[in-house]
């Protein structure tokens, strides 16, 4: 039996707009795919690019960062800062061999539960098409062999790991 691939998406949402938007989607009983694991941060400006890379390094199939709309930032310009990083991060991810669909920055306000649903659905669909983010077999061969020879736990990302694992 082959299970359909269920992507694991890490959602990093700002406290003031997008987290509240996701909350609204919840209390309004809007249905959206359960593939996104939400992490709340105070501001999208808090999102260091290394958070995104760490998510990928530890097995996420996609990363969704969401903050307040331009002009709406609780801290005035945090969302602009994230936008600046996003522009450069997109080029960097491409250079690192990661498909553009796997990372997205969106704006969702506290009353946009529907929009949150739309973004999550779009992202889950796009990442499903790409398949799991996994390091191909020939990558870091010697390191994996070495770790195996030591008998230490090797962090291997299970292909097609499903929701709720």
């Amino acid at each position: 039996m082959t299970k359909e691939f269920e992507p694991r998406i890490v959602g990093i949402l700002c406290n003031w707009c997008s987290y509240a938007g996701a909350d609204l989607a919840g209390i309004s009983r809007i249905k959206y795919p359960p593939n996104v694991r939400i992490v709340r941060v105070m501001c999208s400006g808090r999102v260091d690019p290394s958070f995104v890379l760490k998510a990928f390094a530890e097995g996420a199939d996609g990363v969704l960062v969401s903050g307040c709309h331009p002009v709406d930032c609780h801290y005035i310009e945090g969302n602009y800062k994230m936008w600046a990083r996003k522009v450069m991060l997109e080029t960097m991810l491409q250079q690192l061999g990661i498909e553009p669909e796997r990372f997205r920055l969106t704006w969702v306000s506290a009353n946009e539960g529907e929009l949150f649903k739309q973004y999550v659905t779009e992202m889950v669909d796009a990442v499903k098409k790409l398949g799991p983010f996994q390091k191909p077999v020939n990558w870091m061969t010697e390191l994996l062999e070495h770790e195996r020879s030591l008998g230490t736990a090797v962090q291997e990302i299970a292909a097609g790991g499903g929701v709720g694992e």
Partner: peptide
């Protein structure tokens, strides 16, 4: 780095 290099397609 976290990703250690470009993620190579097979």
């Amino acid at each position: 780095s976290l990703l250690r290099g470009r993620q190579m397609k097979e």
